[in-house]
Computed example of a mutant assay.
Amino acid sequence: MNKFTAVRHIITVLLTLSINTALFAEESQATPSNSPTSPSQTAPAENTKEYITPKPQSSRIEALKTSLAIRRLEHQIKTLEANGEPFLTLYRAALTSSTQGCVIMLHSDNEHPDWPDAIAPLRNAMPEHSWCTFAIEVPDIIKRAEPVKTTTPTADNTQQPAAELPNQALVFARIQATIDDAQAQDVSQFAFLGYGTGASYALGFLAANPSAGKALALIDIESPPNLSDYEVAQKIRQVSLPILDYYVNKTGNNQFAIWRKQAANQRTDKNTDFIQVDALPDRVNGRNSKPLLIQRVRGFLKQYTRQINQRKALPSAKKGLFYESPIDN
């Protein structure tokens, strides 16, 4: 046996031992040595393993709470309940003497109620303009590492049953619980703002509850995976409210935006405006894009909601504060 053959023989033996060890480990996990050998025997309780299911949304919300605590903003957290389950909201009161109303905000999938792209700047800016804000925790649609299932159009023209939004009953219950809480604080006017898939929820809720709000802002609306863009766009026909459709065409296909515009034109109530704005010119401004977004939303609400006069009467001036008293001779 030459030197090369001996080395090859040693490597083969080592590989064989490694494979056998791995197979033995797998068999040990699949069939523990103390597993019952007959139906009458039971495995010891101390040998049962508890497998932890990853909960990315729970982790994300806990991280949000920690971030707010570090910034000393934990007082903005308000836990409400819907369908017997608690959920997180972030509440900010209007920073003026009177309140125009409250903007209910819904974030996009796999985000949270203080997401920096759109929800956070708007929920923090609107209170300066007499609006309170309620940002609601929305359950995840797509779980991490889960394949995305999309709908495909049918070949025939038969009427298909309308599909619901994912977790629709739960999300709508959360929105209603938020409205009830705000009404308990004497808020009487509501506007809705959704970002990404959150815009689809806001649109769907107002389609089902037409009298719940006075205006709707859709920011970069996205369809959930179980609904087509066409199906989501058709919900606009059911909303007889002023709508701001502020979007950037991310896919290179304007068809979704065209369908939304067409659905708005098909509404029977011709007195409600649909304002569709391509946000791309605003976004190219970099750091100025968020102030421009705030300006768009603020201007839209100012024009299409009932406005309370914020001016205060000037105090009566006392002349003694400005003029010297006459000197008695």
Rank of each mutant, 00 (worst) to 15 (best):
T42K: 08
L244V: 01
D180H: 02
A6Q: 12
N254D: 15
V248C: 09
T42Q: 07
L68S: 07
I11G: 07
P116V: 00
L280F: 14
N265M: 13
A22R: 12
K149G: 09
D117W: 04
G299F: 01
L95A: 14
Q159Y: 13
Q303S: 11
N2A: 05
S98M: 09
K250Q: 10
L203D: 00
V239Y: 07
P56N: 09
P54F: 07
S28P: 00
P153K: 10
E81P: 07
I141V: 04
H112L: 00
K78D: 06
Y201R: 02
Q29Y: 13
R296Y: 05
V138M: 06
D328Y: 03
P225Y: 11
L293W: 08
C102E: 15
T268Q: 14
N20Q: 09
T305S: 05
P210W: 07
K78Y: 12
Y201N: 01
D245N: 00
I141E: 04
F192W: 03
L292C: 01
A317G: 03
N124H: 09
H75D: 02
I61R: 06
A63H: 11
Y247F: 06
W131C: 01
V187P: 02
A125C: 09
L14T: 11
A182F: 00
N226H: 13
N226Y: 13
F256N: 03
T99Y: 00
K214F: 12
T12V: 13
P32V: 04
F172R: 09
E62F: 13
L203M: 06
S240Y: 12
T5Y: 11
L293D: 02
D328N: 07
S228G: 14
A120I: 05
N226P: 12
Y230E: 12
Q189C: 09
A279V: 03
L23A: 05
T66W: 10
T89G: 12
F192R: 03
T79V: 05
D269E: 08
D114S: 08
S130I: 03
S188A: 13
I142S: 08
V13A: 15
Q160W: 12
R8E: 11
I77C: 02
F190D: 00
F87K: 06
F192Q: 00
T150C: 08
S67K: 13
M126L: 12
C102M: 14
S58R: 10
E27L: 14
K55M: 05
K214H: 14
Y323C: 13
Q255G: 08
K49H: 09
I219W: 09
E146V: 01
A264V: 10
K49E: 05
V138S: 04
K270E: 01
A212D: 03
Q76Y: 14
L90R: 09
T151I: 12
Q189P: 07
T16I: 15
I136S: 04
A6M: 11
K49G: 01
S97Q: 14
P39A: 04
L292V: 04
S38Y: 06
A199L: 08
N288H: 04
T178F: 08
P113A: 02
N329C: 09
L321G: 08
R72Q: 15
S316W: 06
I275K: 05
I221V: 02
